[in-house]
């Protein structure tokens, strides 16, 4: 290496030490692309086959000039998401629980069908995630489907609820059931999430 490349590389190593980022010098690391200059690096992990690089990059001080631009020293890297995911799965890395449906609207009888659709859009407009059945399933089948869709709550709406301007809100996690007005659904759900 020429003196200025040596100075540059020493500075990089010095900063890595200062920031407590452990590294290994690997003289065989040259990368498969022509545009690299000076610093090259790879993140390696054991146990995902012979191809154990999961990301890497380096300087490409001459790339912009090669494309006809002014001298523009630059550096970058890329991570492979498939390889990161494969490694995480192999290492049993925890992922956050996926966000499930807040509420599933259950139509208890024919009389409630129009109102159920309105209720669906009403709760969505309040900022909740919501869904309903579209196949005319029985009450029991709707409950089963709601559980399969991992809804946290079901809001049951039938003739009787319509008359009283309420819905029966069931917490599928605790099994608790309460009667609330449509306007109160959001607050009741918020309260029970805690």
């Amino acid at each position: 290496m020429c003196p200025s490349c040596i100075v540059h590389f020493d500075a990089v190593l010095g900063y890595l030490k200062a920031l407590n980022i452990p590294y290994l010098i690997d003289k065989q690391l040259v990368r498969g692309l022509d545009y690299y200059t000076r610093t090259t690096f790879e993140i390696m992990v054991a146990g995902i086959g012979a191809q154990n690089s999961i990301g890497g990059g380096g300087r490409y001080d001459d790339l912009v000039t090669a494309l006809g631009g002014p001298p523009t020293p630059s550096i970058g890297f890329a991570v492979g998401l498939e390889r990161a995911l494969l490694t995480m799965n192999k290492q049993n890395t925890p992922f956050p629980a996926p966000k499930n449906l807040d509420v599933f609207i259950v139509e208890a009888d024919e009389e409630a069908s129009g109102a159920a659709l309105e209720l669906l859009f009403f709760v969505r407009a309040q900022g909740l995630s919501a869904d309903k059945d579209f196949l005319g399933r029985s009450l029991k089948a709707q409950m089963k489907y709601a559980a399969k869709k991992k809804a946290r709550f079901v809001a049951i709406l039938g003739k009787e609820e319509l008359n009283r301007q309420i819905v029966s809100l069931k917490d599928l996690a605790s099994g608790e059931q309460s009667e609330v007005s449509p306007a109160e659904i959001k607050e009741e759900i918020r309260r029970r999430y805690r």
């Binding site: 290496m1 020429c2 200025s4 490349c5 540059h8 590389f9 990089v12 190593l13 890595l16 980022i21 452990p22 590294y23 290994l24 010098i25 690997d26 003289k27 065989q28 690391l29 040259v30 990368r31 690299y36 200059t37 000076r38 610093t39 090259t40 690096f41 790879e42 993140i43 390696m44 992990v45 054991a46 999961i54 990301g55 380096g58 001080d61 001459d62 991570v79 990161a84 490694t87 995480m88 290492q91 890395t93 925890p94």
Partner: peptide
Amino acid sequence: FYRRLGLQNFELHLNSIGCKVC
């Protein structure tokens, strides 16, 4: 990135391949 994902046992390999002069 790998730290935030919670990955373990990864290593940073580093080199310098010089510039258009060297």
